[in-house]
Structures are given as C-alpha cells and as structure tokens.
Amino acid sequence: MAKTPPTHHGAFPVTRWSMVLALREGGDVGTGRLALDELCKIYWRPIYSYARFQGLSPADAEDMTQSFFSFVLEKALFTTADAALGKMRNYLLTAFSRHIKHWQRQASALKRGGGKEILSIEASQAEDELSIQPPDHRTPEMIYQRMCALRIIEATVEQLAQEQEAAGKKDQFQLLRPRLDPTLAGSGNDAELAARLGMTHDAVRQSISRLRKRFREIMRDLVAGTLAAPTDEMVQEELTALRNALVSRE
C-alpha cells in the first residue's frame, strides 16, 4: 500500500527517479528497488500502448513491454542513465524506442517473459483502454504521453482512496470520487450527495474542497517523484505538459 507522501513546504525530498539513478552509484538497493517498482507500475501501460500504436499485435506488444521492464527491473537500464535527462517518462520512451529496434532484431531468439522477473500486470488492462482505429491520427508518442497523464491521475486517485479508507471514510469517498477524478464522467449535485451521506450541504462542499486539495497535493508529489531534481517551476511545467497531453490532437 502506498504511503502518504510528506508535506514539502516548497522543498522536495529525494525523489523516486533520483533514488533509481542512485542505484548505479551503490545507493540503497531496497529503497531504490521499491521506487523503481512504483515507477514501473505507472509506466507499464503507457509503454505497452506505445508498442501497440507502433503496429504490434497485443501478444508482441506484451512480449516487448515485459522484456523491456525485465531489463529495467534488473537496473541495467540505469547503469548509464543520464540524470540530466530529468524526466522519467521521456527517458523511458527514448530507451524503449531503442529497445523496440533491438527486440525486433532479436525477436526470433526471445521467449515470452524470458524467464526473468517481470511485473505482475495483465496486458488486458492496457488493451481495454486502447482504441486503435483508422480515424485516430495521433502518433504513438502522443498516445504514450496521454497514457502517462492518465496513469498519474489513476495513481493519484488510488492513493487518495487508500488514505480515505485508512481514515474510515471509504464509503463516503466512493460517493465523492466522481467529483475529483477528471477521467470519470458526471458529477451529481451537492444536495443529492448531502442527502445520501446524511451531511449538510456546506459539509459536503467542504469535504469536496478538502479532497480536491489533497488530490492536487498527491498528484504534485507523484509528478515530482518522476523528476530527478524537481523545483516548483519544473513540477508545474510537467503538470502542464501532462494536462496538454490529455487534450492534444493531431
């Protein structure tokens, strides 16, 4: 279960990305591996989606994605990682593009999974989110960036849900959740929510306001964790880039 991130008060702690990069210099293996696992869970589906929009079949896209993250989880990818690249999502996309070319050259020699440790994630989860139709003229890169944004939102909601459940507010959160998650349709109205929750109209509005504030804090921390050396300005730029990726069209 994800832990509640600390309050930063304008300063960021060591990030997940920087912990991963520290592995190449003998950093804490346990902490670095945990950070790497968390990042891989965020980026598995975007990477898989990129492979699918390169024209690969679901089976081949899964093979390629699993072999890539096997390599990532063995930390070989980061032995020569350039911290100056800064953004995890961009670094992974560049590395995966190279991996595709290598994988295609070696495809006949690869076996599914390769006997290596891989993430326990069903490709069907990613496949269900894709709609590869001829009218969709977005590039694989655009799809990847959009999926990265969606996964950050999803991870934010998951962490917020865990916090609310730990606070004994699971049922309340489930009713309020559509008011927080941009990927969920519909919002209802405060009067209806108040009646269902047995709360006053003002109490519902205050609860929604607090949850939205916490949602923004968690998302900001997750985004900061994908940057090597985040500043407030860099985090805001990344949030803007992810927001733009959700609405971009060719």
Rank of each mutant, 00 (worst) to 15 (best):
A2M: 01
A2R: 05
K3G: 13
P5K: 04
P6Y: 02
P6S: 07
H8P: 06
G10A: 08
G10W: 01
A11I: 14
F12G: 06
S18N: 08
V20D: 04
L21P: 03
L21T: 07
G27Y: 01
D28L: 03
T31W: 09
T31K: 14
R33D: 09
R33W: 10
L34G: 15
D37F: 11
K41W: 13
I42H: 06
W44Q: 06
W44P: 13
R45T: 06
Y50C: 05
G55C: 00
L56Q: 09
S57A: 07
S67Y: 03
K75Q: 05
F78G: 08
F78I: 07
M88R: 01
R89Y: 15
R89S: 13
L92A: 12
L93I: 05
F96D: 02
R98F: 14
I100M: 04
H102M: 13
R105W: 08
G113M: 01
G114E: 05
E117Q: 09
D128W: 11
D128G: 08
D128E: 14
S131N: 13
P134K: 00
P135G: 07
D136N: 03
H137A: 15
H137N: 11
Q145K: 06
R146E: 09
L150A: 08
I152P: 12
I153M: 01
T156S: 11
T156E: 12
T156G: 13
Q159V: 09
L160Q: 05
Q162M: 12
Q164T: 05
E165Y: 03
G168T: 02
L175H: 00
R179V: 12
T183F: 02
A185N: 01
A185S: 04
S187N: 15
G188H: 07
N189K: 11
V204I: 03
R205L: 14
R210P: 09
R212Q: 10
R216M: 12
R220C: 14
D221E: 15
D221C: 15
L222A: 04
V223M: 01
A228G: 05
A228F: 04
A228D: 10
A228V: 12
M234H: 14
M234L: 15
E237D: 07
E237W: 00
R243S: 15
N244G: 04
N244T: 08
R249F: 13
E250F: 10
